[in-house]
Simulated scan of single mutants.
Amino acid sequence: MPSAAVVGTGLIGTSIALALRGRGVTPYLLDRNPEAARTAAGLGAGVVGVPRTPVDLAVLAVPPQHVAATLHEYQLLGLADDFTDVASVKARPQEEAAELGCDLTRFVGGHPMAGREQSGPLAAQGDLFHGKPWVLTPHAGSLPRTLGRARELAELCGAVPVAMGHAEHDRAVALTSHTPHLVASLLATRLLHGDDSQLRLAGQGLRDVTRIAGGDAELWTEIIAANAPAVAEVLAEFALDLHEVVDALRDLGAGPPERHRAGRAHLTTALVRGVQGRARIPARAAGGLRLSGVAAGS
C-alpha cells in the first residue's frame, strides 16, 4: 500500500498508523483535535496534514455516528481513491452514507476486533491487531480494488481478514462485545454500594470481570446506542436468565425445604451452561475467509 491517511488519531487510529509505519507506509494524520494528531505524530505514527494528492486508502477511525458524515466530507475533498472505516457498528453507518449520497463503490466497512480499556493516542500499540480478526463488510457494489486495499490494510496490521454482512456483524458484536461491556459496567456499578472493608477483599476474579468497565463512558455510549436493537435483544435474554437465578437463590435462602432441591438444580444448570458457553470461545482468532470475489450483503 504506497499511501494512506488516517482520520481520527485515538487508540485505534493511532495503532493502525503505527502498524503501517512498521511496514514502511507513512500515513497522513488528520483529527478534529490537532493536539491528538500531533501527539500521534510524536509517537512516530505518521505526519500531520492533508496530502497534496489523493492517497490510495483513507481509514476513518471515528465513532459510528460520525462515519457517514466523515466519509461524505473527505470524498468531496478528494482525500483518497478508496475508503474504509474501523467503527464497531456497520449497518447504520452504511445506511446513513447511502442517504448522504456517498460513493459506496469506493468504500468498504471494516472493524478490527481488538482494543484496550484505555483510550487516546498515548494508549496506542503498533501490534494491537496481531492475530486478531478484522471484519470487512463489502457489498454488492464494492469495487474489487477497494476491497483489496481494505484487506491489505488488515494484513499489514497483522490481522486476519474475515468477511461478514453488515447486519450479521452487528448481531455478532452485540453478543461478543457490546453486551459484555454493558454487563461488566452494571456489575461494576454494584461496587459503588460496597464499603471499603468489603472492597479490600476484591480478588483477581472481580478485576477480570470488570476490567472492560474502565473504558471511556461517552465513547461506549455512542457505540452501544448505534447498535441498540441488537444489544437490547441479547440483554433481554440475559435478563431472563438472571431472573431465573435470582428466583433459585431466593428458594435456597428462604424458600420452603421442598423448593431447595429445585433451586439448587437451577443454580447448577446456570453454572454448567456458563462453563459450556465459555468453552465455545475460540482459543485463537478464527481463520480468515476467502475474500476474493466476496460481496457480503447487509
Rank of each mutant, 00 (worst) to 15 (best):
R278L: 15
L249H: 01
P2V: 06
D196I: 04
A87V: 04
P2H: 01
G287I: 00
A61Q: 10
A286N: 04
A286G: 04
T39I: 07
A87Q: 05
R116D: 10
G131E: 09
G255E: 00
V275N: 06
M1S: 13
M113Y: 00
L291N: 03
V59H: 05
A154R: 01
P121K: 02
G255N: 03
I281Y: 07
A248D: 12
D127K: 06
L122I: 02
W220L: 10
V209W: 14
T53F: 10
L77D: 15
V162H: 02
L79T: 02
A114G: 07
A97I: 01
H166Y: 06
D170E: 06
G115C: 04
H130T: 13
G109M: 07
K132A: 15
I16V: 15
M164R: 13
D195G: 12
G297T: 07
L20P: 03
E258Y: 11
G288C: 11
P282Y: 03
D81R: 15
I224N: 14
R259M: 08
A98Q: 08
T84H: 01
G42K: 05
I212C: 00
L57I: 09
T210N: 09
L11F: 02
L71A: 12
E237V: 12
A4D: 06
E95C: 00
A225Y: 11
S88F: 04
L60G: 02
R145A: 14
A19W: 05
P112I: 05
V25T: 13
K132D: 06
P161H: 05
S3V: 02
A41G: 13
G8R: 00
L57W: 09
G165D: 02
G44S: 12
P180G: 06
G263R: 09
P2T: 12
P138T: 08
E117M: 02
L30I: 14
G44I: 09
R38W: 01
L182E: 05
C102S: 14
R190N: 14
A17V: 05
S15M: 10
V67S: 09
L122S: 10
L104R: 01
E258R: 15
F107W: 13
A228T: 06
R32I: 05
G126C: 11
A248Q: 13
T105Y: 01
L192P: 00
D85R: 08
A188Q: 13
F107H: 08
E73A: 11
S15G: 10
D31N: 11
L199D: 05
P144Q: 11
L191F: 12
S15Y: 06
A295C: 04
S197M: 09
G126I: 11
L271Y: 08
A174M: 01
L192S: 05
A154K: 08
D103R: 06
L235D: 13
D170C: 09
R207S: 12
P256F: 10
G253T: 04
